[in-house]
């Protein structure tokens, strides 16, 4: 059977796209292992196992073809995005719960692949950060700053058996975003905070390199034309503009554009999460509007909210708006109205 002639220009089918996406995530994962220790691999493995497990279970319950849906790798991509947004070395049940909310609640209860209103990985992240703020803010410290970098075997121990003899202070630290917020609240001036060893050239120490690798992976996706430029560019531009405006308004209280671009989930969100074709707006003008809204909200939530990062909430909020944005930004069909006579 051949496909519809209208689809001939579509270069890839879902399984290939997902494989390319995972390939594009590899540099960032590599950088993470190098700079923060191998702990992230445990999270990736567990999230993948749980997500594929839940996917299989729900597909069986719904009586849908297993092979077809499992081969498209969408559950794996969701799992990887979730694992990359979660703290490394979180307890195993946190990954299990995250995978459950991503795959079962956010994806399949809304109708399965292509029907979900919200990005599954971000729903799971939001559920976890709201419910388990303590576990969700224990991030692995950058290897050069940590008193002890857990090896792969130790990482498995930490994830499955809990801390044991190792004190969490030895291998975790606040994220730069979180740290900055608490420091500013206690009245430490901005330049002094930025001079601390947790911070690197522009963002967090280590984290900025991982962000750069996400940018690299994103550039690869753009080059392969798996995503269009609209969403990442509008998202990052909105982050930069909003952050600059805030910094111009009150330099003592707000970090600048570069810091916001290089820290937290900004790069991951811009290239890999906001671009999710199912939950994003789909017209060119709509994509710009959608991503600009998400970028702007990200900085606002970071600056004034109580949670350490705003990317997930910003993208979820814009997910709600995406269908409406699409309605109002339909391009004019060639040959109909609008033009001059």
């Amino acid at each position: 059977m051949t496909g519809s002639p209208y689809n001939l220009h579509v270069r890839y089918a879902t399984p290939q796209i997902m494989r390319q996406l995972m390939l594009a995530l590899l540099p960032a994962i590599g950088a993470h292992v190098w700079l923060f220790g191998p702990g992230i691999l445990v999270g990736l493995l567990l999230c993948s196992l749980f997500a594929v497990g839940f996917e299989t279970l729900v597909l069986l319950m719904r009586g849908q073809p297993l092979g077809f849906y499992l081969r498209d790798n969408t559950a794996l991509v969701t799992a990887w995005l979730l694992a990359l947004s979660m703290p490394t070395l979180a307890p195993w049940w946190l990954y299990l719960l995250g995978a459950f909310f991503a795959i079962v609640v956010a994806k399949h209860l809304y109708g399965g692949l292509g029907q979900n209103l919200f990005n599954p990985a971000m729903v799971a992240y939001a559920v976890l950060i709201v419910s388990f703020p303590i576990q969700m803010t224990q991030w692995a410290a950058p290897a050069q700053l940590a008193a002890h970098v857990p090896s792969l075997a130790e990482a498995f121990d930490l994830v499955f058996a809990g801390q044991g003899a190792l004190s969490p202070d030895a291998y975790t630290s606040a994220t730069p975003l979180d740290h900055l917020k608490t420091q500013l609240r206690t009245g430490t001036p901005m330049p002094k905070v930025m001079g601390q060893p947790l911070y690197g050239q522009v963002g967090g120490s280590g984290g900025e390199v991982v962000a750069l690798m996400f940018l690299l992976g994103g550039a690869y996706l753009l080059g392969r034309r798996l995503i269009t430029w609209h969403i990442p560019v509008a998202f990052l531009a909105a982050v930069a503009v909003t952050a600059s405006l805030l910094q111009w308004h009150d330099p003592a209280q707000h970090a600048g554009a570069l810091f916001h671009l290089a820290s937290g989930g900004a790069m991951l969100g811009a290239f890999f999460i906001a671009t999710d074709p199912v939950t994003a707006a789909s017209t060119p003008k709509g994509k710009l509007l959608y991503a600009a809204g998400a970028g702007c909200l990200t900085v606002i939530i970071r600056a004034f909210g109580n949670f350490p990062d705003g990317v997930a909430f910003a993208i979820l909020l814009m997910n709600i708006a995406a269908p409406l944005i699409d309605v109002y930004t339909q391009p004019r069909v060639f040959g109909t109205g609008g033009g001059k006579p």
């Binding site: 209860l109 709201v130 419910s131 388990f132």
Partner: peptide, 16 residues
């Protein structure tokens, strides 16, 4: 405890 269940989203998900 699983805080989400007590917060408003828990009510919507539970009722659904």
């Amino acid at each position: 405890g699983f805080l989400l269940a007590i917060l408003p989203p828990g009510a919507f998900i539970g009722l659904g």
